[in-house]
């Protein structure tokens, strides 16, 4: 009878509807996703921002023992011309065993800076001066004994007291988990200049 075929037909049609609803929604989601990707990517730094993103610093006025802090991509970057005593203090902190990550195993610096100096050239430290704990700017305390009687020189954060040595390696007992980040840079002692190019992607700023 007609009712039977009607019911059969209804049943078929409902399956068809379910299938088409699923298929249309699936394609709709793809279309939506296709629209979302460009929208989100549009919020990334523009080519103009990227082109303006590297900073070159003249090193010639920085005498041994001196430091300068320059803005790079709205972040303070510290450049220290370390004296031999300062370099010796880096060995000392390691010998004392007070560092959280003395061998710089956590990639807080590009591979070419994975050494106790955390730099391309031992004397010249180039690094982002942002505390790994919660993003404050640590004070530079190069004098021995200035923060504590055992202090060998380094950085002391005013916010929650994180301590770092002169390679910005974090000292045990600090709230900061890792050493301070080192960006990617190029340096030439002939031209006496350094160019900070970009963030080292694996490094965790704070």
């Amino acid at each position: 009878m007609t009712t039977v075929t009607d019911a059969e037909h209804d049943h078929k049609n409902i399956t068809r509807r379910r299938f088409l609803t699923a298929a249309t929604s699936a394609v709709g989601v793809v279309v939506g996703g296709m629209a979302v990707v460009p929208l989100i990517e549009s919020m990334e730094p523009t080519a103009a921002a990227l082109a303006a993103s590297s900073t070159t610093v003249d090193l010639s006025p920085i005498e041994p023992g001196m430091q300068v802090t320059v803005p790079w991509q709205k972040k303070p970057v510290i450049i220290i011309n370390r004296t031999p005593e300062m370099l010796a203090s880096l060995k000392e902190t390691m010998d004392k065993g007070i560092l959280k990550d003395p061998l710089c195993k956590v990639p807080q610096q590009p591979p070419y800076c994975t050494n106790m100096y955390r730099s391309r050239i031992p004397e010249w430290y180039v690094g982002i001066r942002i505390c790994n704990h919660l993003c404050c700017i640590p004070h530079y305390r190069p004098k021995k004994g200035s923060v504590a009687p055992w202090w060998l020189g380094g950085f002391h954060c005013p916010c929650h007291g994180s301590m770092y040595d002169l390679s910005c390696r974090v000292i045990q007992g600090s709230p900061a988990p890792h050493n301070m980040a080192v960006p990617e840079y190029e340096i030439s002692t002939e031209k006496m200049s350094t160019t900070i190019t970009h963030m080292y992607p694996k490094a965790h700023l704070c």
């Binding site: 460009p38 929208l39 990517e41 549009s42 990334e44 523009t46 080519a47 103009a48 921002a49």
Partner: peptide
């Protein structure tokens, strides 16, 4: 013009 030239997908938007 920066949107048209320098921003990812800026032209599309």
């Amino acid at each position: 013009q920066g949107i048209m030239y320098d921003t990812n997908w800026g032209w599309l938007i």
